[in-house]
């Protein structure tokens, strides 16, 4: 489904050009649960931003479901994000003045649905992450773990091709982290959801099926986890 070939990424910082991703090539199949590991600053976020169509400025080839991402316009990228990717960020990224239900339903509005027709879908996805009855609350009124589950519900609501989680447990305590991870594992097992998760915690990463290690912008290793 995802196929990167000799991907290179540079950031311009003042006069300097920083080489952040160096000849990254990898493939991810439908239904995989992949963990991306590496020290801070090694390029993990940069990589998944490109995979998730957030960043269109790169060199090399990215094919998604066989189609090249190189010549897509900005609005094509917006549509690709809306239809194919569910994002889960470290700090949840919920809109603070919208209710939980409105946050969760927002991707559907951008997909062209009407506000009044999406209530059932929102309720269903909220109960699938064990958050019944909090739709009317504001994000601030929920605990961190609950907010992250709202974010996961929002990521799931468009039934995307894959979930991208950038250190999803980084802001949570270990108990809550376990709950969130269990949710990801369930989604991968029961719904065959493709999940790509960035983490620097091996205890988290070993719950996945495959670990890709990145060091200084290069893939250092890429192996499946021994069960």
């Amino acid at each position: 489904m995802i196929r990167l070939e000799r991907l290179n990424k540079f950031y311009q910082q003042g006069d300097e050009k920083i080489h952040v991703l160096k000849d990254v090539s990898l493939q991810i199949q439908q239904g995989e649960f992949v963990a991306i590991m590496g020290p801070s600053g090694s390029g993990k976020s940069t990589l998944i931003n490109i995979i998730g169509f957030l960043d269109h400025q790169f060199m090399g080839q990215y094919r998604f479901k066989g189609e090249s991402m190189i010549d897509q316009s900005l609005s094509d990228y917006a549509r690709l994000r809306n239809q194919n990717v569910g994002f889960v960020f470290q700090n949840f990224k919920l809109i603070s003045n919208l209710s939980v239900a409105e946050n969760v339903g927002l991707p559907l509005l951008y997909a062209g649905h009407r506000r009044k027709n999406i209530a059932d879908q929102v309720n269903d996805v909220l109960s699938s992450v064990n958050l019944q009855g909090v739709g009317a609350k504001l994000p601030m009124q929920l605990s961190g773990g609950q907010q992250q589950r709202v974010a996961i519900a929002r990521a799931l609501i468009t039934r995307p091709s894959f979930l991208l989680a950038d250190e999803p447990t980084g802001a949570l305590d270990s108990h809550t982290s376990q709950e969130i991870l269990k949710l990801f594992i369930d989604l991968n097992h029961k719904s065959r959801s493709t999940i790509i998760m960035v983490t620097h915690d091996f205890q988290v990463a070993r719950l996945s099926q495959r670990i890709i290690r990145i060091l200084d912008g290069r893939i250092e290793s890429d192996r499946s986890v021994d069960q």
């Binding site: 957030l54 917006a78 549509r79 994000r81 239809q83 990224k93 809109i95 951008y110 468009t158």
Partner: peptide, 16 residues
């Protein structure tokens, strides 16, 4: 700014 970023990330086009 954060709200704009979130909206863009979940699929808002720059035009919308």
């Amino acid at each position: 700014t954060q709200e704009i970023g979130i909206r863009l990330a979940i699929g808002a086009s720059p035009k919308s």
